[in-house]
Amino acid sequence: MSKQTRRNFIKTAAVAGSVIAGLPKKTDAAPKNILSEDRMGVLVDTTVCVGCRKCEWACKTAHNMPTTPLESYDNREVMKKMRRPDHTSLTVVNEYEFDDYPEFPIDVKVQCMHCDHPACVSACIVGAFSKEENGSVIWDSSKCIGCRYCMVACPFQIPSFEFHKAIQPEIKKCDFCFSRTKEGKLPACVEICPMEALTYGRRKDLIDIARRKIELYPDRYINHIYGETEVGGTAWLYLASRKFEDLQFPKLGNSPAPGVTEAIQHGVFAYFLPPIALYALLGGVMWINKNRKKSEEGEE
């Protein structure tokens, strides 16, 4: 938001648009969208998580976001109602109680799933989003124009917007601790988790581990790795002891989410229609204004 204002963007788009419009072939905006064989992921074992919320604290600390002291996270009152990740906390842990086993509520950490085929990357019209080689889906504040298409496109409704900020509001979401992993560190939440309910590793390996767990403990896990195939696969994978719908995971198909958004976008923006229409409109307005000015001058 900071360097690129809406006005500037339109200006550049106008120039670029007029150039591109002359080109015969359709060219994609080119955000980084890498699907590496060795991309990393996290396996979340919800049967192990105890809902201590240390990950929430670690996340905020790692991202220099304001947080109450660590001890305050022992207070479980906040878990009485369902929460969603937002601009104040990029990850939250929700607790689900079930009548058939009240001693053991199930805790589920929620954050960006870092899709293999991210809808946000595809939806972002300025290429502010990118899927990096290590699997992270990150967002560049210097490119964002605040259109919030990403929020609409995301099948998990993860990106949030700092609506309360009048100046330079930002899109906020889990960045898979991109700056930490670049230095060879673990994501903050993975590092702090006392139960290692979060296992960080190559996505391929994680799926093997998850499969083996299901095979070894068929009573403990249902035979489903959430994120293995959902929306074409996600970097974050989940194991659970009961149906994922019961834990408020969205029931999604296996085809990548951008399939839908891209179809819409490419339909709407095909042959550069909107900019041309916009120019026609602006041109019309200018022409009317010019005429009016002339006639005013003439009257004088």
Partner: peptide, 28 residues
């Protein structure tokens, strides 16, 4: 990464039981 690290191995043993019978999961 196929088995939990030492910290998690300890915690899984302790917290799983203590949580079940007293709900206590606080570090302290």
């Amino acid at each position: 990464i196929s088995k939990p690290d030492l910290k998690a191995a300890y915690h899984r043993l302790c917290i799983s039981c203590h949580r079940e019978w007293s709900g206590e999961i606080e570090c302290i």
